[in-house]
Design a protein around this nucleic acid. Sequence first.
DNA 1: CATACGTGGCA
DNA 2: TTGCCAAGTAT
Length: 367
Amino acid sequence: MHAASASDLLIWYDRHRRELPWRAQAGERADPYRVWLSEIMLQQTTVQAVKPYFAAFLARFPDVQTLAAAPSEAVMNAWAGLGYYSRARNLHACAQAVVARHGGQFPDTEGALRDLPGIGAYTAAAVAAIAFGRVAAAVDGNVERVMSRLHGLEAPMPAGRGAVAAHTLAIVPADRPGDFAQALMDLGATICTPRKPACALCPWQAPCRARHAGAQESLPRKSPKKERPQRHGVAFVVLRADQAILLRTRPPKGLLGGMAEVPTSAWSAKLDPSQIVQDQPVTASWLTANTPVRHVFTHFPLELTVLCARVPALTEAPESARFTTLAELDNEPLSSLMLKVIEAGLATLGVKRGESQASIDAKEHNG
DNA sequence: CATACGTGGCA
DNA sequence: TTGCCAAGTAT
């Protein structure tokens, strides 16, 4: 058994590397803006989910100056549906910092990158290596898994991350640090997978400690997860006669920070019926949607009872809320949760999104 | 060091 | 259906 070498991995990578929209062609230097944008989007997010967002985001904000100058609502709108919205807020702040502090050029060292908003240890190393050819250990979930198995590391994550970083940094090749980082991630994503790893195809099968012990599926060890208590709430879908629905904007920080939502009650362990009347944004005759909206956040599942009502054309929005027409809804930064709620509410009211009141009237007339 | 922070796909 | 998981960061 020989030691794992970067060259064995790079030979495999040169033959099997994935083609991804944010990746440079073999042998070419990647654009730092694209590398950075993709790395932020890929945090805790699958390649498949990122692809369409990356393309749309790049078309809308082609460079760091454009992004820095954009209004925050536009950035949140472009991020809507991707999740972890503090990433979008920090992305915007980071673009502005790159323009203000670095003349519109991303800094080319791990340390300077680490000082920017939304860039932590992993992303700083990844951008430094991939975009600037710096020797750095970009330790993400893939690398934790690959290196834990390769060296038979038993320390549970994330406590064992330091040891993983040390093992990784020790074999980063000075001539191809960016390719090495991407090779490690490709290996973790396609061969050294969480379940049923394809060890027979692995360039590091010979030196792999876990494989020799038959323990590849039990590494890396992970700390036990916390329980996620169910929460309940009520959401109010208010449709005005001019086809506008009542929205408000959540506070900038915290859950779904800066995103638009329909008014809701507080989300608590038990649903208190007396809160419903108290929390209603306008006085109205409420219709309850047939089925509640269920949504699972990282740290709790949520069940929202959807109450809907039609209100007259001259109804004014209450303090800190606004009416937005259905035609303009695409411009709002609506989370996936709120899209579900709005769809359920409109369906209960007999309205399909994109369908005008005139066409509904015509349908009723014909039916 | 532990916890908050989204979403969709898959077994 | 339920639980796990995916290129982490901020506090």
